[in-house]
Nucleic acid binder design. Structure first.
Length: 862
RNA sequence: GCCCGGAUGGUGAAAUCGGCAGACACAGCGGACUUAAAAUCCGCAGACCCUAACCGGUCGUGGGGGUUCAAGUCCCCCUCCGGGCACCA
C-alpha cells in the first residue's frame, strides 16, 4: 500500500506551519450528507468491491452472516444495529486478510404480502419486490458491505424451486410425510401453524388470537428423527450463547423413562384397548401406584365411554375444560378434575388391581396419554389423590433413614426403595434401570425416551409461499390407490406459483380455487391428477438460504457442494434472539438432512452465533402503537449513516438492550467532526522515515499502538465495540491535546503520519464513508477496508513509567510513579519513601507489604 | 416451580485474571472566543460531612452474611426486573 503524493503537494514538508493550510481546512468541515452519497455512488458502481473471492482462493475464508430480513419495506433500528455489527466484523476481517463472504437476501414469502394485497389491491409479488427495492436502497445508503451478486430472494422461482427439490428428496427419504392429526389453526392467518409458532396458546403473529385445534391432513417433516442429534449437538456448539442452547434443550425436551403395560381387568370390546401403556420417568415408584390416569382423548377412555353414556358425558366435560385451559394459554393452572371409570387395571409388577380414572390434566399428546399415579412421590398425583381420597402409599425413603419424609417425597438421588418386593433397598436410579430391564424381559414394558419436540408441520393454507410439489393421482396406477400421492420428478420443477390469484379471507388454500393450477396429470401414468394446493411454511425458505449465497445463480442444483464445503460452517451468524427456537432449530435440522443426502459435510450450519440485544426507546421496544419508533432514514438524514451506525455500536455492548437517545447520535457526529478536522489537517504530512525521538511523538505512537492492541482484542474476543470506540475517542483526545506541539514542528512527521493513518484504519470498520474519504484525502490508493489492519507494536505501546496505587489496609493512600518493569523491591521502596505513606504509617507497625507486580502495593499496618 | 440473563452516578455505560470503582460519552454547570448567538475550545462534576476556601474525612456497585492483605468481581442466602420452559408424568 504505497502512498501517492500528488504533484502540487510534491514539495510539502513535515511542518504544518502556514496559516493558509489551516484556513483551507476550515472549509473541510465534516459533511456526511455530502460525502456519504458520493462514496455510495462509487461503491454501487463497482460490483466487485465487496465480492468474495472464489472457493479456490488461497486465503483463509470468513463467512460473516446476518439474518436475512422480511421485506416489510422499511428498515428499523433493530436491523440497523444487527447490520452495523456484521458490517464492522466483515470489514475488519477483510483488513485482516481473509476472503470474506458477506451476503444479504430476503425472506420474501409470507402472510403480510397477502394482507397488503387485500388492503391495497396490489399483487403480493409486486408489493414484495417493491419493498425489497426500497430496503436494498436503504442498506446501500447505510454503506453496508454486501455482495449483491449473491443476493437471494426466497419468493423467486430460481430459489423456491430448490425448496421443492429438497421436499421431494425428503419425501423419497421418508422424511416428508402426510398424516391426519390435530393441528394448530390460527383463525386470523386462516392457516395451520407449526407447534413452534404457537406461543402460550396464541399465534406468534397475532398475540390476541387463540389458536384452535383442528383435525386436518397435513405434510410433516420428520425433524424428530434427529431429536437426539439436535440435542447432543448443542453441547458442541460452544460458540453459541448458552441461553439459546438452553432454550433448544427445553424445546426438544428429552425425557428418559419407561413404558409399562397395565392390563385392563375384564372385557373391553374395542380393539387394541385390552391394555393401557403408561409412560413414567419413575418406574421405581410403581409399587406406590394407586391408580391409572387417562387423558380424556385416550382410546381406552373412549372405549369405556362408548359403553356408558353417563361416563361419556363426564369425559366430554373434562375434555372441554382441558380445551378451554389450552385456549386461554394457561394449561398449567387448570384445576384438576377427574372421573373414576369404575374399571380396574393390573399393575404388572405386583398384580395389584388399581382404579382407572380419566383426568383433565393428562395430556393426550405427550408420552402415551396415560400415566400411573403415585401420590406419595409426585406432587400432581398427590394433589389429585388428596382431592378424590385415593390411597397414598409411600415406597421411597431417604437413604440415610432417619425422619419420615414429608409427602409428596420426590427425591431420587439419595433415596432407596421400600415396600417394593425384591427391589426394596435399591437406589432409585439403579432401580429405574433394573425394573425397566425386568419389564422388558417379561414382555410388559421397556425403557424408552420421549421428546417434547414433534414433527414439523409445514403445510400452510396460504397463497404466498412455495407450492408443495406433490400431486394426487385421481385414478391411481400400478402400486398406487386412487387419490394416492405422487412426487413430481425434477423435470417438472419448479411448480410455479400462479400469478393471477384472488386473495380472500375465506378458509382453505387460495390455490385451490385456481382450476388451471389444480388440474394436472399424473407424472407416472399421465392420468388426471390434482395438485397439492397448500404451500410451505416460510421457515422452510430460511432453513437453508445461507447455503444458496455461496452459489446463488446455480440453475442446476441448489448449490455446488465444493463451494459449500469451502465456505461452511458459517464463521459468525448474527441476529435476534427471537429466532432461538424456530429458525435456528429448523436450519440445524435442514443441515443434517442435507448432510445425510450427501450434499454437505458440516453437521451444523454455524460455528458461532451472536444474538444482539433489542433497540428500545423510553424503556420499551419500539413499536408503532407506543409511538416510540425512531426511523433510521431520519437519523441518516440528520447525522449521516456513519454516525448512526457508530452510535448503535457505542451506546451499549452489542449483546445488551440499547436505549436509543438522539443526543448520543449528535455526540458521535461531533466526535466525527473532530476526527475529520484532525485527519484532513494532517493529511498531507508525509513520513520522512526518520526515527521518532520526541517525547510527544513517542507518546502519540504509544497511544496509537495501545489503541490498536485494544481494538484488535475486542474483535477477537468479546465484541465490546462500545469500548473499542471509546478507545478511539481517547486516542483522538490525545492527538488534540498535542496539536499545538504538532503545529509547532515539535513532532516528527513520521509520528504524525503514523497516528493519523492509523486512526483512519481503526475507524474503517465502524464508519466506512468517513474512513474512505479520509483515506483518499491522505493520498492512499485502494479501498481503506482492503488495507492491512495495523499490527500493534508492543515495544512502542509500552509505558516507560507506571502509576502504582499504594493502599494501607486496602484503602488508597496515594499513587507513586515508578519506571515500568521495576522489581518488587524497588516498587516497595518507592511506596515506603512517599510522604503521604510515611504520614499514614507513622507510629504504626507495617505487618506485611503486598506488592502485585505492575499493579499495586498494599501495606498491612497495625 | 425449573432454567438462562440482568441490577454500578442525573443518563448510556467502563473496570476482560480478585488489585485506584465510575474510563468514554450524553445531559448539566462554569469559563474562553464572539457585538451576540451557534459552532468550537478549556475546566468542573458519585453522595455526604468538615472548611471562608484549600486540606481532609466518611459512605458508596439491589439487600444481608462470608472468604481475602484486598470483593462490582469469588462463596452462601434474599429482593426486584427481563427472557425461556412448564400439570411434559
Amino acid at each position: 500500500m504505497s502512498k501517492t503524493i500528488s504533484s502540487e503537494n510534491g514539495g510539502k514538508t513535515a511542518k504544518m506551519s502556514d496559516s493558509a493550510t489551516v484556513e483551507s481546512n476550515q472549509l473541510q468541515r465534516y459533511n456526511p450528507t455530502e460525502i456519504e452519497p458520493k462514496w455510495q455512488a462509487r461503491w454501487d458502481a463497482d460490483a466487485s468491491l465487496y465480492a468474495a473471492e472464489g472457493h479456490n482462493s488461497g486465503k483463509p475464508k470468513y463467512y460473516c452472516l446476518e439474518m436475512l430480513p422480511y421485506p416489510s419495506g422499511q428498515l428499523h433500528m433493530g436491523h440497523v444495529r444487527n447490520y452495523a455489527i456484521g458490517d464492522a466484523l466483515a470489514r475488519h476481517m477483510w483488513m485482516r486478510g481473509y476472503n470474506v463472504l458477506h451476503p444479504m437476501g430476503w425472506d420474501a414469502f409470507g402472510l403480510p404480502a397477502e394482507n397488503a394485497a387485500l388492503k391495497n389491491n396490489t399483487p403480493p409479488r409486486e408489493w414484495t419486490l417493491a419493498n425489497i427495492a426500497a430496503m436494498r436502497k436503504q442498506m446501500r445508503r447505510m454503506g453496508l458491505s454486501y455482495d449483491w451478486s449473491t443476493e437471494v430472494t426466497t419468493c423467486l422461482p430460481d430459489y423456491y424451486r430448490w425448496n421443492q427439490w429438497f421436499f421431494v428428496k425428503m419425501f423419497e427419504a421418508g422424511l416428508a410425510y402426510r398424516k391426519k392429526s390435530k393441528v394448530n389453526w390460527c383463525p386470523d392467518c386462516q392457516t395451520v401453524l407449526a407447534n413452534e409458532q404457537v406461543v402460550a396458546g396464541r399465534c406468534w403473529r397475532h398475540e390476541d388470537t387463540i389458536v384452535e385445534q383442528r383435525d386436518l391432513t397435513q405434510w410433516f417433516l420428520r425433524i424428530t428423527k434427529y431429536s437426539d442429534e439436535l440435542l447432543d449437538g448443542l453441547d458442541k456448539l460452544d460458540g453459541w450463547p448458552e441461553k439459546v442452547r438452553t432454550m433448544q434443550r427445553n424445546w426438544i425436551g428429552r425425557s428418559e423413562g419407561a413404558l409399562v403395560d397395565f392390563a385392563v381387568d375384564g372385557e373391553v370390546k374395542a380393539p387394541g384397548c385390552a391394555k393401557i401403556t403408561v409412560f413414567t420417568t419413575r418406574v421405581d415408584t410403581i409399587f406406590g401406584a394407586t391408580s391409572v390416569q387417562l387423558a380424556p382423548e385416550h382410546a381406552v377412555a373412549k372405549a369405556f365411554a362408548a359403553e356408558d353414556a353417563g361416563l361419556a358425558a363426564k369425559i366430554d366435560g373434562l375434555l372441554a375444560e382441558q380445551r378451554r385451559a389450552r385456549e386461554a394459554g394457561d394449561v398449567g393452572a387448570i384445576e384438576k378434575h377427574g372421573v373414576d371409570t369404575g374399571r380396574l387395571a393390573v399393575n404388572p409388577f405386583n398384580g395389584e388391581r388399581v382404579p382407572i380414572w380419566v383426568g383433565n390434566y393428562i395430556l393426550a399428546d405427550y408420552g402415551t396419554g396415560a400415566i400411573m399415579s403415585v401420590p406419595a412421590h409426585d406432587e400432581r398425583d398427590f394433589e389429585f389423590a388428596q382431592k378424590y381420597g385415593l390411597e397414598v402409599r409411600r415406597v421411597i425413603a431417604p437413604k440415610a433413614g432417619g425422619e419420615e419424609p414429608v409427602l409428596p417425597y420426590t427425591a431420587e438421588g439419595d433415596a432407596v426403595l421400600v415396600g417394593s418386593a425384591e427391589w426394596t433397598g435399591l437406589g432409585c436410579v439403579d432401580a429405574q434401570q433394573k425394573m425397566a430391564a425386568f419389564a422388558q424381559a417379561k414382555g410388559f414394558g421397556t425403557a424408552t425416551v420421549t421428546y417434547r419436540l414433534k414433527d414439523w408441520g409445514v403445510s400452510r393454507q396460504r397463497y404466498w409461499g412455495t407450492p408443495i410439489p406433490m400431486v394426487y393421482c385421481q385414478n391411481g396406477h400400478a402400486g398406487l390407490e386412487p387419490g394416492g400421492v405422487v412426487a413430481l420428478p425434477e423435470s417438472a420443477l419448479p411448480v410455479l406459483l400462479p400469478a393471477q390469484v384472488e386473495i380472500t379471507q375465506q378458509g382453505g388454500s387460495p390455490l385451490g380455487r385456481v382450476a388451471d393450477f389444480v388440474n394436472t396429470t399424473c407424472p407416472v401414468c399421465s392420468g388426471p391428477a390434482r395438485r397439492e394446493t397448500d404451500t410451505m411454511d416460510t421457515f422452510v425458505d430460511s432453513s437453508w438460504y445461507f447455503y444458496r449465497y455461496t452459489d446463488a445463480s446455480n440453475a442446476n442444483a441448489p448449490f455446488d457442494s465444493e463451494k459449500v464445503n469451502y465456505w461452511f460452517p458459517i464463521d459468525q451468524y448474527i441476529g435476534g434472539v427471537e429466532h432461538a427456537i424456530l429458525h435456528l432449530i429448523y436450519s440445524r435440522f435442514w443441515t443434517k438432512v442435507m448432510r445425510d443426502l450427501g450434499l454437505v459435510k458440516n453437521d451444523e450450519p454455524a460455528a458461532r452465533l451472536f444474538t444482539q440485544g433489542m433497540v428500545i426507546k423510553d424503556g420499551a421496544k419500539m413499536s408503532k402503537s407506543k409511538g416510540n419508533v425512531v426511523s433510521p432514514d431520519d437519523m441518516i438524514a440528520r447525522y449521516g449513516a456513519d454516525a448512526t451506525r457508530m452510535y448503535a455500536l457505542f451506546a451499549a455492548p452489542p449483546d445488551r438492550d440499547l436505549e436509543w437517545q438522539e443526543e448520543g447520535v449528535a455526540g458521535i457526529s461531533r466526535f466525527l467532526s473532530k476526527v475529520y478536522r484532525l485527519v484532513t489537517k494532517y493529511a498531507d504530512v508525509a513520513s520522512d522515515g526518520k526515527q521518532v525521538e520526541s517525547a510527544t511523538g513517542l507518546a502519540l505512537l504509544r497511544k496509537l499502538h495501545q489503541t490498536i492492541a485494544k481494538i484488535t482484542q475486542d474483535f477477537d474476543g468479546r465484541w465490546h465495540f462500545n469500548t473499542s470506540i471509546s478507545a478511539i475517542m481517547i486516542l483522538v483526545n490525545e492527538i488534540m491535546a498535542n496539536e499545538a506541539a504538532m503545529d509547532a514542528g515539535e513532532v516528527e512527521p513520521q509520528a504524525i503520519a503514523a497516528v493519523v493513518s492509523g486512526l483512519t484504519l481503526l475507524l474503517a470498520p465502524f464508519v466506512p464513508f468517513a474512513a474512505a474519504e479520509l483515506w483518499e484525502r491522505m493520498g492512499y490508493e485502494g479501498a481503506v477496508f482492503r488495507a492491512a489492519w495495523p499490527v500493534a507494536d508492543e515495544a512502542l505501546a509500552r509505558e516507560n513509567e507506571v502509576e502504582i496505587p499504594v493502599q494501607a489496609n486496602g484503602k488508597l493512600v496515594t499513587v507513586v510513579k515508578v519506571a515500568a518493569g521495576s522489581d518488587d523491591d524497588a516498587v516497595k521502596a518507592a511506596a515506603l519513601a512517599d510522604e503521604k505513606v510515611k504520614a499514614r504509617i507513622e507510629g504504626k507497625t507495617v505487618v506485611k507489604v503486598i506488592v502485585v507486580p505492575g499493579k499495586l502495593v498494599n501495606l498491612v499496618v497495625k
